[in-house]
């Protein structure tokens, strides 16, 4: 079943990615004030969205692991965390590349930027906690951390926003007037990236399960 889904997912991607690139480069209009750099925006927002979605998956899988102790849930959470880190890294790298030519600054402490950075740190901490070994207690700890870290995300966002509402923002991401065409392309990018996410998730999940099986086989051999 999983293999079939992966094949299907792969071919959907093969179809969606070229269409998405076509839409971004040829269909979507060039933004008047920002120029062509603004087109980075479609992938930037899509990867940010996936980064957040991946953390929701980590959260749910962590709860499921603590509830029923199925190793698969832990594998799913770890795979999702790794891919989430990948996409959040994309967001963090493209953000400044887009902001610098427009606002003449690489970084501002806007709530969304701050939250994204903290999210990245929490992902890295999660992987560091889990990555050192496959002992049972590491799985449990990672699940506990996954839950606490996810609860922390809205707290970071709202406290950062509240702080910024007191000290006015110099540079703001608001006010990008999106035309209907742009909106459609952005929506399409998000859909494409969601398929990319599930494809990578399946791939990585299988990789982690294989590594686990090798560990078991080695343990059996050494007996």
């Amino acid at each position: 079943m999983l293999e079939g889904w992966k094949k299907f997912n792969f071919w959907v991607l093969m179809l969606l990615v070229p269409i998405n690139i076509y839409l971004i480069f040829l269909y979507a209009p060039v933004e008047k004030t920002m120029g062509i750099v603004q087109k980075v925006f479609y992938f930037h927002v899509a990867s940010a969205w996936i980064g957040l979605l991946a953390f929701v998956v980590v959260f749910i899988a962590s709860i499921a692991y603590l509830a029923n102790r199925k190793v698969q849930m832990n594998h799913l959470a770890l795979a999702s965390a790794e891919i989430g880190t990948l996409f959040i890294s994309c967001t963090l790298l493209t953000g400044p590349l887009w902001a610098y030519p427009i606002w003449n600054t690489w970084w501002t402490w806007d709530p969304r930027l701050t939250t994204t950075l903290v999210l990245w740190f929490m992902y890295v901490a999660y992987i560091a906690l889990q990555g050192g070994g496959t002992a049972e207690n590491r799985r449990r700890f990672a699940a506990v951390y996954g839950i606490v870290a996810f609860i922390n995300v809205p707290l970071v966002f709202f406290s950062a926003r509240w702080w910024r509402s007191i000290h006015p923002i110099v540079v703001s991401g608001e006010g990008i007037g999106l035309t209907p065409k742009m909106r459609f392309v952005m929506f399409f990018s998000i859909v494409t990236f969601s398929f990319l996410y599930t494809y990578l998730l399946g791939l990585r999940y299988k990789g982690i399960s294989l590594a686990e099986r090798i560990n078991r086989l080695k343990a059996e051999l050494s007996q």
Binding site: V37, L86, C90, L93, L97, W98, L200, R204
Partner: peptide
């Protein structure tokens, strides 16, 4: 910056896929 932005995303995603 536009080229750089897209290059970064593609290198990261394709590199990661190839790696795993």
């Amino acid at each position: 910056f536009f080229t750089l932005g897209y290059a970064v995303i593609w290198i990261l995603i394709l590199g990661y896929t190839a790696l795993i």
